[in-house]
């Protein structure tokens, strides 16, 4: 809410800066995950995405002032949940592009990962709204 106190142009500037970690999260999920697929730990693709998601979230929290995020624990948790969900979901979508995944395995992974990702994204959105009013 801090942004709106300084007028619309400032809010727009802050909004654009706030978007950068999310744009980078998409790049991580679509480019970095397939590049690092053999190196990343865990067998499930969503877990591989989770690893990078957590790393990226830590980086974003550490440099939150660069992206104009308020130093607020609720917003930090919200951003971490959303960024990790995006990267994990994008990683999950690469199951169909490899030569070693099977239908049964992907069914099992999807059944567990998608509800978890959807819930964490929803919690992230709710915390984002709450965090902006704190």
């Amino acid at each position: 809410m801090q942004s709106f106190q300084n007028g619309f142009p400032q809010a727009l500037k802050n909004g654009l800066l706030n978007t950068i970690p999310y744009a980078i999260a998409i790049i991580i999920g679509t480019i970095l995950v397939p590049m690092l697929l053999p190196i990343l730990p865990f067998r499930a693709f969503s877990m591989k995405g989770l690893v990078l998601g957590v790393i990226w979230s830590v980086v974003v929290i550490k440099y939150s002032n660069v992206f104009y995020y308020d130093n607020n624990i609720v917003l930090n948790i919200s951003n971490s949940l959303l960024l990790t969900s995006i990267i994990s979901f994008l990683a999950l979508n690469f199951t169909g592009s490899t030569t070693f995944t099977s239908l049964s395995g992907v069914k099992k992974e999807t059944l567990i990962a998608v509800p978890v990702i959807a819930t964490s994204a929803l919690v992230g959105v709710v915390l984002m709204i709450i965090g902006n009013f704190l």
């Binding site: 979508n93 169909g96 099977s102 239908l103």
Partner: peptide
Amino acid sequence: CIECGACDNNCPVDAIEVETGVGCAY
């Protein structure tokens, strides 16, 4: 096993059974 079904399709006596399909999450 990636459940491609190649063995199932090529077995002359139908001794192998595989549930085939593309492992695409989307």
